[in-house]
Every structure is written in C-alpha cells, then in structure tokens.
Nucleic acid binder design. Structure first.
Length: 165
DNA sequence: TAAGTGCGTCGTT
DNA sequence: AACGACGCACTTA
C-alpha cells in the first residue's frame, strides 16, 4: 500500500507491507513497484495510518536536522542476509556522523567486502531513514548515491556534514 | 589537484 | 562470467 509524505523538499512516496514500511522513494521518481497509485491516508487501515504518522514525523525531523524520536517498523525482509547486515550497520551511524564504505565493511566483520557494501547501500529500500547517505568514500569524499548525488549532498547538508574538497 | 590505469576483493545477477 | 555507490598504488598533466 502506497501513501504520500509531503515535506519541505518534496513529496516522498512510502510503501507499506503488512510488516511495516517497506520502501521509501524520493520525490518525482518513477514508481518502481506497486501500481503507481497512492491511497489517501485517511482511508488506509488504522495500523498503516499509525505507521504513516511515524514515517511522516521521522522524515520531517530528519530533513530539519533532528534525530527522529521514533520510527515505524521497517520491513527489510526483501533483502539478502548480507544486505540486511549492512542496513543494520547503517542504522547505527548517528546523526551528523559518517563512515566510509570500508568502515562499514569492518563493522559487519567483512573488511574486504567494501565494494559489496556499496552495492548493498545502493539496494537500500528505505533511504534517509536507513541513512545510506552517511556512507562516504575514503577520505571524506562524496562517493555515489542511488537517488542522485544532489540528494546525498542535500541530506548531508541537513546534518551539517562537511565533505573533503 | 585532477584525471587516468590497474588490481584485489566479494555479493549480486 | 560480468558488473559495481570501493580503496589503494600508482602515473601523467
């Protein structure tokens, strides 16, 4: 089920499964899955409405540079075991701090899988709330971003993170 | 600084 | 078997 999330930087698109928030798309992005239609928030089942309220608050907090107090349940069951390990590690990177791909690889006990970590970041279904934007290339350089590098820069700027020139 | 080449590495398709 | 949101060690402008 798909619901819209208006924010100061555009309207994000949230997709819910029975387990929670399953995907979050940036504004103006071709709908990758689903039927492309969104459900009016007040017509959604009560549980999804509750989750959606949390999603909306959390996302707007993030974009305002504050750490969300709570998140909806995140349904990352679609990921492989490796991807889920990476995504879990990403959730442990605090607001305003960053890690390199190599540091994330270390954190999950696979110090040589740096490139594979990049792949898992790119497959992150819930950007922003699972903060893949806090993963930079070595030496505080920008690296890549599935949602477009502009978004990565913008999200980092929200958290006051400086990049290497 | 910046741009290019090459290679090790490993999960995903 | 081929391909990356990597990282490192280079070389060349």
């Amino acid at each position: 089920m798909t619901l819209l999330v208006p924010t100061s930087l555009g309207t994000f698109v949230a997709h819910y499964s029975a387990q929670g928030l399953a995907r979050l798309d940036f504004p103006n992005r071709p709908t990758s899955d689903d039927d492309g239609k969104s459900t009016a928030a007040d017509l959604a089942p009560a549980q999804i409405r509750r989750w959606h309220t949390l999603t909306s608050k959390a996302l707007n907090e993030m974009l305002a540079g504050r750490a969300p107090k709570s998140l909806p349940p995140l349904d990352i069951s679609a990921g492989t075991q490796f991807q889920r390990r990476v995504w879990q590690a990403l959730r442990e990177i605090g607001m305003g701090t960053t890690k390199s791909y190599a540091q994330v690889a270390d954190a999950i006990g696979k110090p040589r899988a740096t490139r594979a970590v990049g792949g898992a970041c790119g497959a992150n279904p819930i950007p922003v709330l699972i903060p893949c934007h806090r993963v930079l290339a070595a030496n505080q350089r920008l690296g890549g971003f599935g949602g477009g590098l502009d978004w990565k820069r913008r999200l980092l700027a929200c958290e006051g993170i400086e990049l290497f020139a």
